[in-house]
Design a protein around this nucleic acid. Structure first.
Lengths: 214, 214
DNA sequence: GTTGAAATTAGTACGAA
DNA sequence: TTCGTACTAATTTCAAC
C-alpha cells in the first residue's frame, strides 16, 4: 500500500520552508520542474537544463530524494490501453470511529488508485479503475458495501479526463494568467482565512443537508 | 497543458487488446508493474527483474513508449514540502455548449492538478493545490467564477490523502481479497450493465444534455 | 560549488538460435 | 521474436581545486 498519511497541516503560506526538511531554493524548484516533465532524464542532462554542474546536480538530486521531497519516480500509463477503460469516483460516508478499519480495507483493494478524506457531504472520495461498468458496480456493491466502516456510497463515472499534471509547484503560479500575487514581496493573507462564498461544509456536520450553489 | 482527451470509450471487457495499439502480454504487464514502482530503473535492471534479455527489454520498453501505453515518466513530489500544503476539490457546473471554453481556461490554470468530466450532480471535478486556504478561496471566487463557462462551484477540502497509486493495472485484480472473477474463464457480464443500487445520476439530468468536445 | 579524469554502466548493432 | 555478444557512447563516481 501507499500510505500517504501525514499531517494534513494547514498551509503556512511560506512556500519553500515547511516542517523540518531541507530548504528549497529556486534551483531545487527548477529541478523538480524538469523531473516532473521527464522523470528519466539523466542527472547530467538535468544539470545542464538547470544550469549547475553535474556534481551539484547529483548532490541536490540525492538530497531531494533523501529528504522525501521526491517521493518516487513512476511511469504514467494509458489506462485504456492497459485494459482498464472505466474510471469512477466513489464518495463514501464512513461510520464514526471506524476510520482505521476503512483504511485497512482500502489497502486491500488494488483497484483503488486514489483515496482522500474530505470535508463536505461525504467523508472520503476514492477513484477506481476497472475494465467495465459492471466491474465498478460489483466493486461498489459487493466489496465496498461489505465493509462495516462504510455507511453509504455514491458513485459517479468519469467521462473524460481533461488534464492531469504530475504535480503542481508553487512556481507554476507565475505562468498562465496574471496572478494577484505577482509581486514578489506581497505578504500572503493571514491564515485565519475568509471562506466567503465557499461551501465549506464540515466533515462532521451530520451530512443532513447539502445545498448546491445556484 | 496536459490534454488527456481521448475517447472515454466504455470498457470492452477485453483487457490487453484495446484499440489499435500493440497487444499487451504478461511480460508487458510485468514491465509496467516494475516501472510503476521505479520509473528510473535502468533497462538492464528491468530486464533482470522481468526475466528477459536486455535486448528484449529495450525492444519492449521502446514499444510501450512508442505505442503510448506509457505516456511519460514523472517524479512524485511531496506537495507539502514543495510549499503547497492545501489540496481542494472543486466541483463545477458548466454552462452548456461552453465546454471548449472551459477546457481552454483550465489550461491556463497551472494550479489545477487534475480535471475530470463526470456524471452526477456536477459536470466536472477539479483538484487544486495551493499554499493556503485563502489561496483556494481566491482561486475559486476570483478566477474560476470569472469564467463564463462556469455556472456554479462547490468546494471541499482534502484533509488527508490516504493512498495514491501511480496507476492501476488489470493484474492488480489478483491481489488482495478474493475476487468474484478469479476463474479465468468466467465470461464478463454483458456491457448493457446493471446499475443496481448505484447512484448513477445522468450528467444530462437537469441540464438538457451534455456534448463532449471532440 | 566546480572541474576533470577513471570506472562503471547504458544504449546500439550485429549474427545466431 | 528473442537472445547473446561486442562495440561505442554516455553516465556516475571520486578525486583535487
Amino acid at each position: 500500500m501507499t500510505d500517504m498519511s501525514g499531517s494534513p497541516s494547514p498551509g503556512t503560506g511560506v512556500p519553500g520552508r515547511i516542517g523540518i526538511g531541507l530548504q528549497l531554493d529556486a534551483i531545487h524548484m527548477k529541478i523538480l520542474e524538469v523531473l516532473r516533465e521527464n522523470g528519466r532524464i539523466s542527472v547530467a542532462a538535468l544539470a545542464e537544463r538547470v544550469g549547475i554542474s553535474r556534481a551539484s546536480a547529483y548532490t541536490r538530486f540525492e538530497a531531494l530524494r533523501a529528504d522525501g521531497v521526491i517521493k518516487r519516480f513512476t511511469a504514467e500509463v494509458d489506462h485504456l490501453r492497459a485494459g482498464l477503460g472505466i474510471t469512477a469516483l466513489v464518495f463514501v460516508t464512513v461510520r464514526q470511529q471506524m476510520w482505521k478499519q476503512f483504511r485497512a480495507q482500502l489497502a486491500q483493494m488494488p483497484e483503488v488508485e486514489y483515496c482522500a478524506i474530505t470535508t463536505g457531504q461525504h467523508d472520503a472520495m476514492i477513484q477506481v479503475r476497472m475494465a467495465d461498468v459492471a466491474a465498478v458496480h460489483a466493486l461498489v456493491t459487493e466489496r465496498l458495501a461489505s465493509i462495516p466502516a462504510v455507511k453509504a456510497t455514491e458513485t459517479v463515472f468519469i467521462l473524460d479526463e481533461v488534464l492531469r499534471r504530475p504535480y503542481v509547484l508553487p512556481s507554476d503560479r507565475r505562468q498562465g494568467r496574471p496572478q494577484h500575487r505577482a509581486a514578489p514581496a506581497e505578504p500572503p493573507p493571514p491564515s485565519g482565512v475568509p471562506l466567503g462564498k465557499m461551501r465549506f461544509t464540515s466533515a462532521a456536520e451530520g451530512r443532513a443537508s447539502m445545498h448546491k450553489e445556484p
